[in-house]
Amino acid sequence: MKKFKSSRESRVSITELMLPSHSNFGGKVHGGHILNLMDQIAFACASKHSQSYCVTASVNRVDFLNPIEVGELATLKASINYTGKTSMVVGVRVESENVTTGEVKHCNSSYFTMVAKGKDGKNKLVPGLILKTKQDIRRFARSKERKQSAFKRDSKYESNNFKVNEYLEFLDGENVKMDFD
């Protein structure tokens, strides 16, 4: 296995016709179906990069920007944005295309942290990432900063670190009522 790979070597994409069986009660493609496809392509991309079985460790923020209609083509594109020792951040972009008009819409993007597993089930080292473009560096830096921010946020809100009095002002103007028993 190579010690380093470019994101281009692991890039994958899929296109799937959205069927009535994929729709929700509002007649649009169900977000859960899209999330399932996103997880599958993140797995494929991470597995291709690491040459290993991979598991999803986390998903960072999924904003549904535009609905996907039944009968449209959904295209998902995935590439490695960041590599750690055993983990990878896979950027996933979802677009829909109206087959009769040719209109293409960006529907959502998200970032999946995937962890490579060895045959013994333990975390396995992954190849590093070769950064070839300014875009590669931007994506790597953004992923690293997102990871550091999440760690700071998580530790800041742990029960033993949380100081209620420092956050009471956050409640001003919110749709909450304090009722301590």
Results as ranks from 00 to 15, higher is better:
residue 2 K to Y: 09
residue 3 K to F: 15
residue 3 K to T: 09
residue 4 F to S: 05
residue 5 K to D: 02
residue 6 S to K: 01
residue 7 S to P: 02
residue 8 R to W: 10
residue 13 S to R: 14
residue 13 S to A: 12
residue 18 M to L: 07
residue 20 P to A: 00
residue 26 G to M: 08
residue 27 G to D: 05
residue 28 K to L: 14
residue 29 V to C: 07
residue 29 V to P: 01
residue 30 H to F: 14
residue 32 G to V: 04
residue 34 I to V: 05
residue 39 D to V: 11
residue 41 I to D: 06
residue 42 A to T: 10
residue 43 F to G: 04
residue 45 C to Y: 05
residue 52 S to V: 00
residue 54 C to D: 11
residue 54 C to G: 01
residue 58 S to W: 01
residue 61 R to L: 13
residue 62 V to C: 04
residue 62 V to R: 03
residue 62 V to Y: 02
residue 63 D to K: 11
residue 66 N to Y: 01
residue 68 I to G: 02
residue 75 T to D: 04
residue 77 K to T: 15
residue 84 G to Q: 08
residue 85 K to F: 02
residue 89 V to H: 15
residue 89 V to K: 12
residue 89 V to L: 07
residue 93 R to P: 03
residue 98 N to P: 04
residue 104 V to Y: 06
residue 113 T to M: 13
residue 115 V to R: 08
residue 117 K to L: 15
residue 121 G to A: 03
residue 121 G to P: 06
residue 126 V to Q: 04
residue 127 P to L: 08
residue 128 G to A: 04
residue 130 I to K: 05
residue 133 T to A: 00
residue 135 Q to Y: 04
residue 139 R to G: 07
residue 139 R to E: 10
residue 144 K to P: 02
residue 147 K to Y: 12
residue 148 Q to C: 02
residue 149 S to E: 15
residue 150 A to M: 14
residue 152 K to R: 12
residue 154 D to A: 10
residue 156 K to I: 14
residue 159 S to A: 11
residue 175 N to C: 09
residue 179 D to A: 14
residue 181 D to S: 09
